[in-house]
Simulated assay, not measured.
Amino acid sequence: MRTEDLDYQLDPELLATRPVEPRDAARLLVLERTPGPLEHHQVHALPELVQQGDALVLNETRVVPARVHLHRPSTGGGFEALVLPSHDPEHIGCYVKGAKRLHAGDRLEVRDDAEHAVGILEVLGREGEEVRLRLVEGESLGALLEAAGQVPLPPYILGARRDRGESDALELDRRDRAWYRTVYQAAGGQMSVAAPTAGLHFTQSLLDRLVAEGVELVRLQLEVGPGTFKPVTTTRLEDHPMHRERFVVEAEARRRLQSVRTGGGRIIAVGTTSCRALESLPEVLSGETIATETDLLIAPGHRFRHVDGLMTNFHLPRSTLLALVAALVGLDRLMDVYTQAIAHRYRFYSYGDAMLIR
């Protein structure tokens, strides 16, 4: 399909730079997969909008404070970096602004908000857009990020905050540490550099109410990488180099999903990340734990094998996430829904409102 078919115009005022509070007070636009009228609710009404026996599939990945500032001690030059998910304690991959000024053997300090050095990284080289480094001073990568890292908010939120004069970056980062994470994220396991944003709307009270109504909450982990921010620049969507992301679905989760399917319930993915993981599973749902990677591009024409419904935020134009949602309801219908959402002043993107497709 043509990438330009995924384009639309958004009033910049509708780009949300912070979430509503409480989380489940966000607005929820509800539509059926088959044509019909739209309904306007709030997320806290979700238990009345799904059915007993349905499953909501949650991505419990953990967002790490992966945005760091690096300094070259010899010259004082600074760099902003995004640390990529890594399971190698020795070597670290980063996207670095100004990476062309870096060379193998350079040593870079990682500094906290008070400008104290908390670790030193050595540049090993570059692999495409990625700069490879190793930790030469400091306890661990995790400790370094906790001490000096900032929340890896999408660039469009940071840009909108600057444009609107929301300039208290340190105070906002402290608040983002609570805002930009789900209440159900795992303590360990997968590390993500972006949140599964549909999940940001859930409170513990809402989760408890869903369980009380007989809704299954099934958890998996998909490690959200920086590719989620990458715009589609190719003329045809199919030519876009799709990013790979690790995911894990435990055997017990697969068994519960099969039980829901056998019992006639619907499998509703909470977020596009959960959807990608589910659609990357084998045809038979039940089975052993799966820990692998996916580069699945879901676009119009995709035959959904496991996902019956989707709760998701409103996505950027010309994005693979928008294409995924279009695959579920049809491109023309989705663009009409987005036109109506804009007319009703829904808030867009990571900190914005949500839609439920059922």
Rank of each mutant, 00 (worst) to 15 (best):
D5K: 05
L6Y: 15
L6K: 10
Q9G: 10
E13F: 06
A16F: 05
H40Y: 12
V43Q: 12
V43T: 15
V50H: 08
L56I: 07
L58M: 04
E60Q: 02
V68C: 10
H69Q: 15
L70I: 04
H71I: 15
G78W: 09
R101A: 13
L102F: 04
A114W: 09
V118T: 06
V118Y: 04
V123E: 07
E127C: 02
G128Y: 00
V131I: 09
E139R: 00
Y156E: 06
S167G: 11
S167N: 07
D168P: 03
E171A: 11
L172E: 14
W179M: 10
V183E: 03
G188L: 07
M191H: 13
A194Y: 03
A194V: 11
A194D: 01
A198R: 04
F202M: 05
T203V: 12
T203W: 12
E216Q: 11
L217H: 00
L217K: 03
T228K: 03
F229K: 03
K230C: 08
H243Q: 12
R256H: 09
L257E: 04
T262N: 13
G271P: 02
S274E: 00
S274K: 01
C275A: 05
C275W: 01
L281Q: 03
T292I: 04
D308E: 00
F314G: 13
L316H: 03
P317Q: 08
L324S: 12
L324I: 00
L328A: 06
V329M: 13
D332V: 02
Y338V: 13
Y338R: 12
T339D: 14
I342Y: 06
Y346R: 03
I357K: 03
R358L: 10
